[in-house]
Amino acid sequence: MNEVFWLSEDVATLPVAEIAKILNQPVSRVHQLVKDGQLLSLRRDGEVVVPADFLDDDGAVVKGLPGTITVLRDGGYSDPDILRWLFEEDESLPGTPVASLRAGRHREVKRRAQAMAF
C-alpha cells in the first residue's frame, strides 16, 4: 500500500493485528479480506489500519459492507473514494453510510451505492 487513503483523523481505526484478534483470524486472512473487498484498509502513521466501524458489536464485519464495497468498486470507484463516501455525512440517510450499515439499513446504503456507481 503506497498511497495514503483519505480518512478524517477523528475516524477510529485499529491495526490489522487487532482486527485479526477480534475476528479470530490470522493477520494474513485480514489482508485477504481487504484484497477481496470484504474490508478496506489504509495506512495511518506508517501502519496499516482498518476503520473500527467496519466491525459490529459482535466482532464481525458489518453486514452489507462487503456488498457495498463491491458495488462501488465495480462502478469504478477507488478505495480512497469509497472510504470518503462511507464516512461523509449524508442528510438523506441521515448520518454516514457506514453508520447506516451499522444500524442495519444496508439495503438502503447499497441502493445509494448502486445509483452512484451506474
Rank of each mutant, 00 (worst) to 15 (best):
M1N: 13
M1R: 11
E3C: 09
E3F: 10
V4A: 13
W6F: 13
S8K: 11
E9C: 09
E9G: 11
D10T: 09
V11Y: 08
A12Y: 01
T13A: 12
T13Q: 09
P15H: 05
I19F: 02
A20D: 08
K21L: 02
K21G: 00
I22Y: 00
Q25K: 14
P26G: 05
P26E: 07
S28K: 11
S28H: 13
S28G: 11
R29E: 10
R29Q: 13
V30H: 02
H31S: 11
L33G: 08
L33C: 10
L33K: 13
V34W: 03
V34L: 03
K35T: 09
D36Y: 10
G37Q: 02
L39T: 01
L39G: 05
S41L: 01
S41Y: 09
L42R: 11
R44W: 04
D45Y: 10
G46H: 04
V48T: 13
V50Y: 00
P51L: 04
P51D: 04
A52H: 07
D53C: 00
D53P: 08
F54G: 02
F54S: 05
F54H: 11
L55H: 00
D56A: 01
D56G: 08
D56P: 12
D56W: 04
D57W: 07
D57V: 10
G59I: 07
G59F: 01
A60F: 13
V61D: 02
K63S: 14
G64P: 01
G64N: 02
L65D: 05
P66K: 05
G67H: 04
G67N: 11
T68P: 07
I69N: 06
V71R: 06
V71D: 07
V71A: 15
V71G: 09
L72P: 06
L72I: 06
R73G: 01
R73M: 00
D74I: 03
G75W: 07
G75K: 04
G75R: 09
G76F: 08
G76D: 12
Y77M: 11
Y77T: 05
Y77I: 00
S78T: 15
S78W: 00
S78L: 14
D79T: 12
D79H: 07
P80A: 12
D81P: 03
L83H: 08
L83R: 09
R84T: 12
W85E: 00
W85C: 05
W85V: 00
L86F: 09
F87I: 13
E91T: 14
E91D: 15
S92R: 14
L93I: 14
L93A: 07
P94G: 15
G95D: 11
T96K: 11
T96D: 09
P97T: 01
P97K: 02
L101D: 05
L101S: 02
R102N: 05
R102D: 02
R102A: 14
G104C: 01
H106S: 15
H106D: 13
R107A: 14
E108V: 04
E108R: 12
E108K: 12
R111A: 11
A113N: 01
A113S: 04
Q114W: 03
A115Y: 07
A115I: 04
A115W: 05
A117W: 04
A117K: 04
F118V: 10
F118K: 13
F118S: 12
